[in-house]
């Protein structure tokens, strides 16, 4: 099986700071990680490889330092890594990102046809969940999003059965390869890399392609110029006018605190008292 996993390098956003005066994002010194959602995709891909044979290639579009993320994926057990990096990719929105990734995937498929492309459900920075569907559409792959489990795979018939999270339940879908799967979080337990994989990862070559080498013919479809969306303004949310009215009760008697809270709630929303007593009686 030829399995591709798209992984994105993202800032560890718990540590993102915003400059208090200029309101800009301070990226300096912010550690980067593999987008956490993508690890579930990588794990599922490796599980299929371990069962059916073949290889898992990780693909990333990003700045040169994104090689780190790919090496970490190799350390977890991926077989091969491809980084597409080019100034012309800078400022890509999801349409331009899916164009660049689909083009590189097309180039990879020239060597050997791709059976499954995996992506994460979404990223923690852009957080759009649009890149997976974009790639599927461009490559004509059967699109299977929000997958919580792969029930079965029949390589002879090239058919696959998956569970897809939808509103109010789970759809059990039968589809066909080649397909694109966006994997739901917590759908598997991500392995720790073996010592051998870690050692291999440190030395393994990472294929690095420019836009041209990735097969991009029309650079106008990449980066800022290939992006229909434009971010016009970035700003901090305005703080609320007043802060909370504090309940003050002498002593620490919970019962009196409880009564005081209720008085204040009903003072602010008298109709709520009426509604609650009506349903309670």
């Amino acid at each position: 099986m030829n399995i591709l996993v798209c992984i994105k390098q993202v800032p560890d956003s718990a540590q993102i700071r915003v400059h208090p005066v200029t309101n800009t994002i301070m990226r300096q010194g912010v550690p980067t990680i593999i987008n956490p959602y993508d690890l579930f995709a990588l794990e599922e891909a490796m599980r299929l490889r371990d069962e059916y044979g073949g290889q898992v290639t990780v693909l990333c579009m990003g700045p040169p330092m994104a090689e780190d993320a790919l090496r970490r994926a190799l350390g977890l057990g991926a077989d091969r890594a491809v980084l597409i990096t080019d100034r012309r990719f800078a400022g890509s929105d999801t349409l331009a990102t899916s164009f660049a990734l689909a083009t590189a995937l097309g180039k990879i498929a020239e060597e050997r046809a791709i059976d499954i492309v995996f992506t994460g459900k979404q990223t923690i920075d852009g957080d759009t969940a649009q890149v997976g569907p974009g790639i599927a559409r461009r490559m004509g792959l059967n699109q299977l999003t929000y997958v919580s489990a792969i029930d079965s795979l029949d390589m002879g018939r090239r058919s696959i059965v998956v569970r897809r999270r939808s509103e109010g339940g789970v759809q059990v879908l039968r589809s066909a390869l080649p397909c694109l799967i966006t994997m739901l979080e917590d759908s598997n337990v991500v392995r720790r890399g073996s010592i051998q994989d870690m050692l291999r990862a440190a030395r393994a070559p990472v294929t690095i392609w420019s836009a041209e080498e990735a097969g991009v013919e029309d650079p106008l479809k990449c980066g800022l110029r290939g992006s229909p969306t434009v971010v016009k303004r970035v700003f901090a949310p305005s703080p609320r006018e007043e802060s909370a009215e504090m309940v003050t009760v002498e002593g620490k008697d919970p019962a009196r605190i409880g009564e005081a809270i209720i008085d204040l709630i009903f003072a602010r929303d008298p109709k709520l008292e009426v509604a609650l007593t009506a349903t309670a009686s």
């Binding site: 349409l95 649009q130 569907p133 599927a136 559409r137 699109q143 999003t145 939808s166 434009v230």
Partner: peptide, 23 residues
């Protein structure tokens, strides 16, 4: 921005080649 809406919007925007603002 539900499982249905996100799945569909991403495909349709790509097919039309237009912009899509999420969430």
């Amino acid at each position: 921005a539900t499982p249905l809406g996100r799945d569909l919007a991403g495909s349709v925007a790509t097919t039309l080649g237009t912009g899509l603002t999420a969430d």
